[in-house]
Design a protein around this nucleic acid. Structure first.
Length: 403
DNA sequence: TCTGGGGTCCTAGGACCC
DNA sequence: TCTGGGGTCCTAGGACCC
């Protein structure tokens, strides 16, 4: 989806279209509705970034805001310095989750094999998908003629036809998403997930890209390695330092050398992805590994002086986490905490308990034990609680009937 | 002017077992 | 007497992604 959170907000506040808008921060900047006493007309007063003082980062920036250098993960104080008149809206996850469901449902009616990649992104397996309206039977896939060429067997679909069909499917998907949500998305059709992901950023917003295997050298190789999903800031910086500035250069690099620099597994992986090789399936079902809650305080807290406040936050986190587990139907055996100090150093501790739980008090108890193992001599910026080693909650036999 | 919240996966060492 | 070869589980940290 294109600038997903911001685009959802623009549906609600169409008067902000064309203006730089960012989503993020805390809760103290809700738009104020002002009703004209005479006409009854409602206008809204929006907060701008000007004078923003506090913690928080941009979650999403509209394309207009991006022209000012505003982008997700940018600190709001920095953003205010760059574009003081940009509009700041608070995040509304419930709204985004609703629109996420809507767009995924619309897609599923056309292409049901979906891999969820978060609130605003999915992979689709289009192998057997026909464009809506095409009532012809799907031809046998190229190279799949083993069923025989007897009566009724269609001629295998040619490579070219398959790409044309996929383009029609992609157009239909974009139409369906727009109709269901009023939102635009960018789609790439490619031979695998790796290439589809990179190609989906080539034409944004509201883009449609077809990338065939032969296009890798011309369209992918000139791009910086950072565009590859799995090459982040660290690996990218190291590649730059080694003089590898493009995916093409990475493809031509010696695998043994990459393995020396990055380790055997990651080195071999770098070489494969640079060549556009990726044989991962579209994974349509998965179970969560862990569920967590964390919060960054408005100011850094001292373990001694702010003990009461910390304790209350800690309890709240455990209770929220317990509710999340119950709502999603999981119990977990590994209870962990996360602390971030004023110097941004992060530590974690965890403990595996005998019986899986989703009980707030049991979580709080185990997490408290973990907390005792951390020296608390610095001010604390963030506290988190996590439950891992999850298993689906079994229906408790001792529950009252009807539960 | 510091840097959110919710996740996954990988690595690596040590305990422990057969 | 001086040291195996697997395997699994647990823990901590870090890179990376949306």
């Amino acid at each position: 989806m294109d600038a997903f959170y911001a685009s959802v907000e623009l549906l609600r506040y169409p008067e902000l279209r064309g203006r730089p808008v960012v989503i993020g921060g805390g809760r103290r900047h809700q738009p104020e509705a002002v009703t004209d006493p005479v006409s009854g007309e409602v206008t809204r007063k929006f907060a701008t970034l000007r004078g923003y003082a506090g913690r928080g980062v941009i979650t999403t920036a509209t394309y207009e805001a991006r022209k000012f250098g505003l982008h997700s993960a940018l600190g709001l104080m920095k953003a205010a310095a760059l574009a003081p008149d940009a509009i700041l809206l608070p995040v509304d996850f419930d709204a985004y989750r609703r629109y996420s469901r809507l767009f995924k449902q619309a897609v599923a009616r056309i292409a049901p094999r979906i891999e969820d990649r978060g609130i605003d992104e999915i992979y689709l397996d289009l192998t057997d998908v026909q464009p809506p309206g095409a009532d012809l039977p799907l031809p046998l896939a190229a190279g799949d003629a083993t069923e025989g060429w007897g009566e009724g067997a269609t001629e295998p679909e040619s490579e070219i036809d398959a790409w044309w069909r996929a383009r029609d499917v992609a157009r239909a998907l974009k139409d369906a998403v727009r109709e269901a949500t009023g939102l635009t998305c960018s789609i790439a059709v490619a031979p695998n997930k790796l290439l589809a992901k990179i190609a989906s950023e080539l034409d944004k917003p509201d883009g449609l890209t077809i990338l065939r295997p032969d296009d890798v050298a011309t369209r992918i190789w000139p791009l910086p390695p950072r565009r590859i999903n799995g090459i982040g800031p660290k690996a990218s910086a190291k590649l730059t330092a080694l003089g590898v500035h493009t995916i093409g250069a990475l493809a031509h690099a010696d695998v043994a050398w990459l393995a020396e620099e990055f380790g055997r597994n990651y080195g071999a992986w770098l070489s494969r992805v640079a060549h556009g090789v990726d044989d991962r399936e579209v994974v349509t079902e998965s179970e969560p590994v862990s569920i967590s809650r964390e919060t960054t305080f408005e100011r850094d807290l001292s373990a001694r002086r702010d003990r009461a406040e910390l304790s209350e936050i800690f309890t709240d986190l455990c209770e929220s986490l317990a509710r999340d587990l119950a709502r999603k139907g999981y119990v977990g055996r590994t209870i962990g905490i996360k602390l971030r100090f004023d110097n941004f150093k992060t530590v974690t501790r965890d403990q595996t308990i005998a019986a899986a739980t989703q009980d707030a008090q049991a979580i709080r108890r185990a997490a408290g034990e973990c907390l005792k193992r951390v020296p608390l001599d610095r001010r604390i910026r963030l506290l988190g609680v996590r439950v891992g080693s999850l298993s689906p909650q079994r229906q408790a036999e001792d529950q009252p009937a009807g539960v």
